[in-house]
Simulated assay, not measured.
Amino acid sequence: MSAETGTDTQDPGEKLRLGGMALRNGLLVHGPSHWAAAVRRDDGSIAVASGVKPRLQGRIESVPGARGVVRLGEAMLVIPLVKRALPEARLPFQDRTTLGAMAATAGAAQLVRRRLRGAGGEAAIAVLSLAPSLLALRTGDLAAYHGVEHKAIAAYEQDEDDAADVAKEHDRCGSHLMAPLLTANVAGSALLRKLVERPGPAHGAALSLASIGVAVEVFAWSERHADSATTRVLRKPGYELQRLLGTREPTATQLEVGEAALAEILRVEGAPVPVG
């Protein structure tokens, strides 16, 4: 997933800032003000839909930490709109095996929390929480469509005629959030247990939101300092996750679905469609 952070301000003539989410049978792309999705139907045809993105506006948009949570929240609000417009779309976790893994992971996390205290326990739970996502990527075509997402967006950004020629790893993939998110969560959990004798669900929810806010700010900083040595270190885990597990080289027919999603988002955003 290409994470969406920062401002939506767009200078005339600039490339659109695009993000997205891989589906099990297609691709969802986010633009500054619209979304577009394309999926491969069971009969082999491609279905396309698009719409206006929900916006959560107010002063919170300029508050560091909170603004990233708001942007990610807006991205989540698009999902039911996609399902309504494209009932054929299959979401990343729309799979019995993955749903079962999510339930098993939740149970295992509770067991670890009871038996392993301190930072070690929180670190184990944080790593365990990645299991359903990794399982989802290893089943079906999700990893391939994750590669489609990166290739389609990168080809547009780099003025490449053929998305097959660009890398399947991308600088704005949500995988780059993982390292700062896990670090913030483990550190925050250790601090919370020192300040609160028995943290409850509300404390846990607040910690999760705070960790997301910190991770998004680190992500945005890395974008602003893309050439720094620190950014290269911060992005290394995400690149390796993409390379080894998160993405797979897509087929020509899968790339065709990505091209349809890209063409639709450019159409609804009023941007020129590249001629290749």
Rank of each mutant, 00 (worst) to 15 (best):
H203D: 11
A123F: 08
A226T: 10
P201F: 04
L72D: 08
R96V: 12
R41F: 04
S211E: 01
I46S: 08
L137C: 03
A37N: 03
Y239F: 15
T247H: 07
G58Q: 07
L191G: 11
E14Q: 15
I79V: 11
I60T: 14
W35V: 11
V63R: 15
A47C: 08
A47L: 11
S222F: 01
A144D: 10
P180M: 06
D171L: 01
G188V: 04
Q254L: 10
V166A: 10
R24A: 10
G44Y: 03
D11P: 00
D95E: 15
V214E: 04
N185V: 10
L56R: 08
A47W: 09
R193T: 12
P32T: 01
R114Y: 11
L72I: 12
A252Q: 05
R41N: 13
V148Y: 04
M76Y: 15
G204P: 12
I153L: 03
A210Q: 08
D141I: 07
A163Y: 03
P180F: 06
L245D: 11
S33T: 13
R248C: 10
T97W: 11
R114E: 15
A109Q: 10
W35S: 08
K236M: 14
Q110S: 05
D42W: 05
G204F: 14
M21I: 00
P64S: 00
D162Y: 05
A136K: 08
E88C: 05
G19I: 02
D42P: 15
R243Q: 05
D227N: 14
C173L: 05
Q158R: 15
E197C: 03
A144N: 06
G100M: 08
T230W: 14
L130G: 00
A75G: 09
Y156P: 15
H34K: 15
L195F: 07
E240L: 13
A124M: 09
L266Q: 02
A85M: 01
N185P: 00
L72E: 10
A152D: 12
A260V: 04
D11T: 09
G140I: 06
L191H: 09
P274C: 14
S2M: 11
H146N: 07
N25L: 08
R40E: 11
R198Q: 13
S189N: 12
A226F: 03
H170Y: 04
T98W: 13
P80S: 00
P32A: 13
Q57R: 13
A104D: 03
L116P: 11
L191Y: 11
S45C: 06
L28K: 10
F93E: 04
Q242R: 02
A220N: 07
I153V: 09
A131V: 15
A144T: 02
L28R: 11
M178C: 07
P92D: 04
I153H: 10
G68V: 04
S133I: 13
G68C: 02
L142P: 01
